[in-house]
Computed example of a mutant assay.
Amino acid sequence: MSILGLALPTLASNLNKTIDDVSLVLVARGGGYVSGSFIAGILESKVNFHLLATIFVLVMSIGVVLTPLILNVASFYIFIGLSAFGMGGYETVANVLCLYLWGKKSEPVLQFLHFWFCFGSALTPFLSKPFLNKVFHYTNHSVNGSATTSMASFQNITYIENTTVPLVSVPYFVIAGFLTLVISSLLILKFFASLDSTESQDENTIEQEGTRYRYVMLILMFLLFFLLVGSEVVMFTFLYKFGISETPGLAYSRDVSADLSAVFLFSVVIGQFFAIFWSRKFSLGSSLSVLPATLLNQTQLSRQLY
């Protein structure tokens, strides 16, 4: 999830484009993610879990491998959308699978699952920054020698030694390698193990809470995640760009900007870690009550950054 924000300036530079020229990549990723999640929700009860998860991971892996090998902006959008499609589908399947496996005890398990999701995102800046194009900041002087504008430029496209493969491909290939490992594991489970799916839904719960309550909670959670997670992902995607840019921006180096992104993501990891234990002690309603304050704080931070 986090590799796009870090690699976007490098990928755009390799295409001889600016970040503004390829900004629609966020639409492609969002559309792919929503499509994958929607289709996974439809197929969840019709296709075997292992097979469905394997298909989505395979699609994601193909998109990840092809993204750094882009030839033009159109293919860039296609490959990003393809990897997001697989990501959205697989995450949806994995969440539902946890509900089947652990039933009423799934709350801390789901939090634990998303903790590792965030932890992987937080490690990505450290693993990927050696393979990103370096950023050079310089000052443009007028005829009389006074500084007029400060500008940033990127290192020319760099390749893996003795190849024509861009250096930025390395972190993408590493991610694809882990995805291949997941595919292999899912296939092994598919053919050598059986999924003991137990009924996780207490039928009395619907009668106790009522249908209206469930729809209201569904709408409220949709709005919260639509605003909170959506703004978080977009803000992080442009955080690295904000770090390396001159105006507006912080004019940091490549490594410092990557570390700034890691600080943001590790903050999410810390919150996700405590959520594992929080979910064992407090109800879902109590947990959701802290989200409006979090959304307000994040909105204020976004206004300060941009």
Rank of each mutant, 00 (worst) to 15 (best):
residue 10 T to I: 00
residue 12 A to I: 01
residue 13 S to Y: 09
residue 13 S to H: 15
residue 21 D to R: 09
residue 25 V to R: 01
residue 29 R to C: 10
residue 29 R to G: 10
residue 37 S to G: 15
residue 44 E to R: 13
residue 48 N to P: 08
residue 56 F to K: 09
residue 61 S to T: 13
residue 74 A to S: 12
residue 75 S to I: 07
residue 75 S to N: 10
residue 77 Y to C: 03
residue 84 A to C: 07
residue 86 G to Y: 05
residue 86 G to S: 07
residue 87 M to Y: 13
residue 88 G to I: 10
residue 93 V to G: 04
residue 103 G to K: 12
residue 103 G to R: 09
residue 105 K to S: 11
residue 107 E to I: 04
residue 110 L to W: 04
residue 113 L to R: 06
residue 122 A to R: 08
residue 124 T to M: 14
residue 131 F to H: 02
residue 132 L to S: 07
residue 134 K to Q: 09
residue 136 F to V: 08
residue 141 H to G: 01
residue 144 N to D: 15
residue 151 M to F: 13
residue 161 E to Y: 06
residue 164 T to R: 01
residue 165 V to Q: 06
residue 168 V to D: 01
residue 179 L to M: 03
residue 192 F to S: 11
residue 193 A to K: 14
residue 195 L to H: 14
residue 200 S to V: 02
residue 202 D to N: 15
residue 203 E to A: 08
residue 216 V to L: 14
residue 218 L to D: 00
residue 220 L to R: 06
residue 221 M to K: 09
residue 225 F to H: 00
residue 228 L to E: 06
residue 233 V to S: 14
residue 233 V to D: 13
residue 239 L to S: 03
residue 247 T to R: 14
residue 253 S to H: 05
residue 258 A to Q: 05
residue 274 F to N: 06
residue 278 W to L: 13
residue 279 S to D: 01
residue 282 F to K: 01
residue 287 S to H: 11
residue 287 S to N: 11
residue 304 Q to F: 14
residue 306 Y to N: 02
residue 306 Y to E: 03
